[in-house]
Design a protein around this nucleic acid. Structure first.
Lengths: 359, 359
DNA sequence: TTTTTCAACAAAAACGTTTAAGTAAAGAGG
DNA sequence: CCTCTTTACTTAAACGTTTTTGTTGAAAAA
């Protein structure tokens, strides 16, 4: 039907044996030449060229399973993540994936949805598939994994794993410095929910940053998130309540973009313009931050960098390199439309006089 | 150092040979018992129990590489997607992944970023890794792939692949029916950009739906998107322009959520309230649709269903099952705050009289 | 001429499974 | 007592590589 020396059909991939038959050489010789191992030096150039030509002609691709099995590297890592359909996980995963692919690694993704039994099972299954290491995103590991592991925004520290964390001090400083430079002195704050991992860390960082900038934090301008939701509504009621107490502030620094978006609406619904009357700064730089009108000035968590870094460190560790306990990444201030120079204090008084009745 | 019958340390996984040594049985026997093959019927229950117990004790996990290599199934599929950091890709991928994991399959993700060389290379690399099939998301394939393939929102049809597409007729009908039931008669439309794949299909569907509902489409209420951006700003200028021409409409059906969000802002900036003055319907149900205030009524593309369906059909095909050319999925109308009963026509007139000068 | 050395490759083992084919011992049937 | 089954396994091949060790024929050295 099909002549033997013709390129075989695409159904069964051509293997070393096929080349061996075609070239009249042993698979050993072909393998060494194609891999350019030291032993290939003993093979004359003419033969090498014949081999290369044949491999090219038949589009030979070594079977990765066989290669990995033989004891070489699997060039595969496992990624554990709670969810990838929401912004955070997707962004980090995308960055991790891009880095790994660029280095010739493939990866399995296992979404455990925070179910303990899956968190127990998936690492084992991934190990069964010979992954060389793990990248763990936003997940609390019960026990350390039996392979090189890099954790992004993890909640616990274990022996031997590398943690990638945001530099919260710098984040707070960037945001407050920006506002101070715009002339803002009375700044309102939305603190994170008590159960949110970063809430305390970030608030402490804000206090330090305020101190270093000579900025005084007014107790009456602080509100705290309470409800647990993925909707920006999270920020709406607290800002409405704040506005009933006082309008004597020119800027608002929210715990995250979600609450900042809720705040935008609350401010607008209260008749205040952003940024003319109040500047708003968010945190995270989720996708919809840029989508708001006005678009949101925010402290960006470099999720792409964090992902790429995780990939880089993991591959390093796999190759027996250093194993840092913690790597800190720097946030970035993304200035958009929601921040502007502070209005003069006099205007505040004027607005206040014509303001809404309290209570 | 370590006694031989003790559970081995976690560094090297225990293999069939280890069990063989421990039990004094051949690997063949152990394998057949653990796999419950027909041949295991000849092994007495006592032995079987011994084997099971040992496997349990040492937490034996068969090496997936070896198993796949031996010619059985790799239980792995490849997923080709342009990008996973934006909503669409992430949502579909999440659904695909969940389905596959639930069926014991793992998957490699390859993000080709629409670069032709990667689109050429990645399928080959995935094949090298013995994937059993492909799921291709939002990608124009140049040539059919050499394995079972399911395409979600693909742009071309090839021999032997299964396409998963949205039922656009139903989508259009749902949206218009909703508006009609709310009493809307004068409805404005935002058409998709000429280069967008679904633009024409969807518009045709809208025309058919309008016809069937006895709704007349007014030429002067149609605008079309032009710019190519991921920001909702895409919808802003066209709606502003529309509003300069006329305010004589009570509802707006946008091409997608992005443009609908831009439209929300444009309407508000023109002094119109949503939904009191104008109802707005979007399309897709991207995450930020629910995040708007008012939250957006929209036609939901069941990206989760589409992903799960793709997984299901692919596994079916891999197991030699049916190979449908096209599978249509139904959209769903998600009613939120941006739609409400039409205001009476009289008010329209009133508004119009006090309206903006034309030209 | 015989031995040694070298070039150029081949043979075979190994990775950890699965599976077809084979076999020793025990029991059944004659 | 001999043969035939059956039981309960074992042996060995196979998957497609990589890698260590061997082998062959010819040229160089003795």
């Amino acid at each position: 039907m099909r002549k033997s020396k013709e390129a075989p059909n695409t159904h069964k991939p051509v293997g070393l044996k096929d080349l061996s038959r075609y070239l009249g050489l042993s698979t050993a010789t072909i393998s060494t030449v194609l891999n350019g191992t030291p032993a290939a030096a003993e093979i004359p150039a003419a033969t090498q060229e014949r081999i290369l030509a044949a491999a090219e002609k038949f589009n030979y691709r070594p079977n990765a399973l066989a290669r990995s099995l033989r004891g070489m590297r699997s060039h595969t890592v496992g990624v554990l993540v709670p969810e990838i359909s929401e912004g955070y996980g997707a962004l980090v995963l995308a960055a991790v994936g891009d880095y790994l692919l660029s280095k010739g690694y493939f990866f399995f993704v296992a979404t455990h949805r925070r179910k303990p039994e899956l968190l127990e099972e998936y690492p084992q299954m991934l190990r069964q598939r010979s992954v060389e290491g793990f990248i763990v995103i936003d997940t609390a590991l019960e026990k350390p994994l039996p392979l090189p592991t890099v954790v992004i925004s993890g909640h616990r520290n274990h022996e031997g794993i590398t943690n990638i964390v945001l530099n919260h001090d710098r984040a707070a400083h960037l945001a407050l410095e920006h506002l101070v430079q715009l002339g803002h002195e009375r700044i309102a704050f939305i603190q994170g929910q008590p159960f949110s991992a970063d809430s305390e860390t970030r608030w402490k960082a804000i206090e330090r940053a305020a101190e270093s900038l000579g900025l005084e934090i007014q107790e009456e301008l602080i509100v705290q998130l309470e409800i647990d939701t993925f909707s920006p509504y999270v920020g709406y009621p607290v800002v409405r309540r704040l506005l009933q107490r006082t309008r004597d502030f020119t800027a608002l620094f929210a715990y995250n973009d979600l609450s900042a978006i809720g705040a935008l609406r609350a401010l607008r619904d209260s008749g205040l313009r952003v940024p003319e009357d109040v500047s708003v700064v968010g945190f995270d730089d989720i996708n919809s931050a840029a989508f708001q009108i006005p678009s949101l000035t925010t402290v960006r968590q470099p999720l792409d960098k964090m992902g790429a870094l995780a990939g880089e460190i993991l591959l390093q560790r796999i190759q027996g390199g250093e194993n840092p306990v913690e790597v800190m990444v720097d946030p970035e201030l993304i200035v958009r439309e929601s921040t502007a120079p502070a209005r003069p204090r006099v205007e505040v008084g004027a607005k206040l006089e014509s303001g809404v009745a309290i209570g």
